[in-house]
Design a protein around this nucleic acid. Structure first.
Lengths: 235, 235
DNA sequence: ACAAAAGTGTTTCTCCTACACCCATGT
DNA sequence: ACATGGGTGTAGGAGAAACACTTTTGT
C-alpha cells in the first residue's frame, strides 16, 4: 500500500528548458537549468523546474511561468512533452506531472540569473536527479533531436536575425554531427521559411554573410502543421 | 470565476479507439466507439470512453481498462496522445484529461458488443460530442495518419497473420489514397519487420498470396525507437 | 598577397514512382 | 481459356551527399 489513506492524486507541471552554450571543440552544447528541492521528499536533490497546477491556470501558462521563475526568461518555443504518472514515481503521494519542453534564446540565457537553488548543467551529462527526472530529460532530448530534423524550431535558439552559419551551428550542436555548409544552405533556402533582411554581418576576416530572419508565415499548407505546438513571440 | 470555491482539479483518463470496417467504395473506413453520458454535465451527449483516474492505477492501465469496458477488447496498440487541460473545457470543475489512443483488431471489433450507451461511428464524420472531444478525436486521427507513414503500427488492425494485400488495404484506408501494390510490397519487405509464415491463403480465384507475420524484434537499432509507445500482445 | 569563410556549380548516388510484364490459381 | 490478383523487373526522375571552385572580406 504505497499511498496514505485517501490522499487524492496531485497534478504538477514541470518544464525541461534547453539553451546552447559554447563548448569545447568549437561545437556548442545543450544546457538545462535545474532547481534544488527545498522540501521533502528528495530534499536537496536537483530537479526540473515546476510546481503544482493552480486550479485556474492553463497548463501551458503554468509551464511558462515556472520557466520565467527559474530563468527570468520567456520561452521562444514551448510544447507539451508527455504526462508522467507512474503510481510510485514519488514516494509519498500519487503525483501526475504534465511535462513541457522549451527552447530559450541562447544569448539571453547566457545572462540568466542562477543562484544557490538554480543551477545550469549540460543536458547530456546530468547528475542524479530527483524522482524520474533523468528519464524525462532524456525523452525531451530525444524529442528535440528528432524534431529538429523535420521542423524549423532550431531558430528558437537564436535572436531575430542570424546568419546561415549560426543556424548551422545550432543544428550541429543539437544533432551532434557536422553538416556540409553548401548543402545546408540549399536545404534551408528551399524550406521557404527564411527571409533575407538585406543586412550583412560585418567585422569578420572574410566575406560578410547575409543576415536572415525566420518567417513562419511561409509556403507550407495547413495540412502538415502540427496541432498543439506553440510558437511564442519574443516577449 | 468559472469554478466553485476551492474544488480541486480532477484528473481523468480517456481513450480514442480506432478500428477498420468495410466501406462503400471497396475501401475500409475508420470507426470509433463512443459512450453516452449518463450524468451532468452534458448528460445524453456522446463522449469518449474514459473516467476518473483511481489513485493506485497506472495511466496506461486505466486507458486499457476503459477500452475493455466499452468494447470488451484488448488494445493491440496503445499510446499516450496528449493531455488536455484547458481551464474551461468542462463547465463545472477543472478537469485535466490524459488521453490515450488505441488500435484494436478489426475482425474482433466487428464482433464487439454495442448497446444503448455504446455506439460505433465513422471517425471522420462524428456527431457533436461532449466537451472538447471532437477536437481530441481529430488530433488522434492526425497522429494515426502521420504515424502510419513512419512506423509499423498498421498491422495492429490485423490478426496474427496477414497477406500484403490486407496490409496494404489498412494503409489505404488510413491514408485515404491508393498505393501501388508492387512498390508497397518492396517497401514493406525492405522494412525487415515482416516474416513469411510459409503458409498461403487459398480459396481465391487467383494465385494464392503468402501469409506474413509481424516481427517486432527485427533489424532496427534501439536509437530510433520511440521511448514511450507501447506495443501490446493480443491477450 | 593570403587566410578564411561565404556562396555557387556539378557530379554521383540513392530512393521513390510508374508501369510493363510474368505467375498461379478458381471458374 | 480467361479473369484476377500475386509477384518481379526496370527505366526515369527528384532529391541528398560529396566536393571542386569562385567571391569577398580583414589583416
Amino acid at each position: 500500500m504505497p499511498h496514505q489513506l485517501d490522499a487524492p492524486t496531485r497534478l504538477a507541471v514541470s518544464t525541461v528548458i534547453f539553451t546552447l552554450r559554447p563548448g569545447a571543440a568549437g561545437r556548442a552544447v545543450l544546457w538545462t537549468p535545474l532547481v534544488r528541492r527545498t522540501r521533502e521528499p528528495q530534499l536537496g536533490l536537483w530537479a526540473l523546474p515546476g510546481g503544482w497546477l493552480p486550479v485556474n491556470e492553463e497548463l501551458e501558462v503554468a509551464a511558462a511561468r515556472t520557466l520565467r521563475a527559474t530563468t527570468g526568461l520567456a520561452p521562444k518555443y514551448l510544447e507539451q512533452l508527455y504526462t508522467f504518472g507512474e503510481v510510485n514515481r514519488s514516494p509519498d503521494a500519487r503525483v501526475v506531472s504534465v511535462v513541457y519542453w522549451a527552447l530559450v534564446q541562447s544569448d539571453e540565457a547566457a545572462r540568466a540569473a542562477a543562484g544557490p537553488n538554480v543551477r545550469w548543467v549540460p543536458a547530456d551529462t546530468l547528475p542524479g536527479l530527483a524522482f524520474d527526472h533523468n528519464r524525462i530529460v532524456e525523452y525531451a532530448l530525444w524529442r528535440l533531436r528528432t524534431k529538429v530534423e523535420y521542423t524549423e524550431i532550431a531558430h528558437a535558439f537564436l535572436g531575430g536575425t542570424f546568419t546561415l552559419a549560426e543556424l548551422r551551428e545550432v543544428y550541429e550542436a543539437v544533432l551532434q554531427r557536422s553538416l556540409d555548409p553548401a548543402n545546408f544552405r540549399r536545404t534551408m533556402i528551399a524550406s521557404g521559411r527564411l527571409r533575407e533582411t538585406g543586412e550583412f554581418q560585418a567585422g569578420a576576416a572574410h566575406r560578410p554573410p547575409k543576415l536572415y530572419r525566420y518567417d513562419p508565415s511561409a509556403t507550407r499548407t495547413a495540412d502538415d502543421r502540427e496541432p498543439f505546438q506553440s510558437e511564442r513571440p519574443a516577449s
